[in-house]
Design a protein around this nucleic acid. Structure first.
Lengths: 137, 137
DNA sequence: ATGCACCCTGTAGTAACTATAGGGTCAAGC
DNA sequence: GCTTGACCCTATAGTTACTACAGGGTGCAT
């Protein structure tokens, strides 16, 4: 399987695949006589794992960990669970942060009138380093 | 006002201030005889604006736009409104994405058992590029 | 005179790719 | 048998928004 086919099969850019190889996430495949990469099914599976993890927001560092854990087939599942739980927590925190931010932006936009920049509420709201009066959590 | 004081006043790292100057977001201040940057109140205000915008998640590109708009005191407020609205939309989209992601992670973690990696549900769930039903070779 | 906190410039590093330059390979069509 | 186009190769630089040095100068107190 050539790199272009693997790319299509996993919806990944060719450059990204080469990048994963350089990063040691994907083992080096055999080469054809023309020095083309020649992938096996195992590469496809591993790349799918990486992509799915990335889609779920895991960092490459975490993916690396997950792969190592996955490779050690007899290890207890706990470590995997820990990585995933930590990530879930981080995602939940991010959602909370963004929600607070959305509320602030939304408040700011509600005050938007029809004047000029000179008395634009958004601009003056941005000029305040501490939170404007109406913000609460 | 020296750069360290400005940094403290705006809760910004000294390097970040210099970076904003290099990026043209903050005008070059006067220099003392020792070639130290010597800031005015206007710099403080502008930096507060930048930092607050960044806190609200605007990219530096957007901040640049907002600053330009804010400088043109007689322009209508519409353009500012547009930048802010677009950002609000982007934030809402991000929240939606992360929420979907959280649900998926959460589902994945619920299946977590007490076995070894060999039959770890998380690992096999990650291995699936499309819907988690059965692994097919 | 010495120490220390602060300032300066310039460069490189971070995350996870993406894009480009400058080249080689292969199958198909004329 | 030669060209065209799609594909492949390596190596390097660019992206975002900073952050972290390295190597040096300044100002003030002891």
């Amino acid at each position: 399987m050539k790199i272009g086919e693997l790319a299509k099969a996993t919806d990944t850019k060719v450059e990204t695949i080469r990048y994963y190889e350089a990063e040691g996430l994907l083992p080096q495949p055999a080469r054809t006589q023309a020095n083309y990469r020649d992938y096996e099914l195992s590469h496809l599976e591993r790349l799918m794992f990486i992509r799915r993890s990335r889609d779920l927001g895991f960092t490459l560092k975490s993916v690396r960990e997950l792969l190592t854990l996955a490779d050690d087939n007899d290890d207890p599942c706990d470590a995997v669970d820990e990585v995933a739980s930590a990530h879930l927590l981080a995602v939940e925190q991010k959602i909370a942060d963004l929600t607070a931010l959305r509320d602030e932006l939304s408040t700011m936009l509600q005050c938007s009138g029809d004047g000029t920049v000179g008395d634009c509420r958004i601009i003056s709201s941005l000029a305040l380093r501490s939170l404007p009066t109406t913000v609460e959590r």
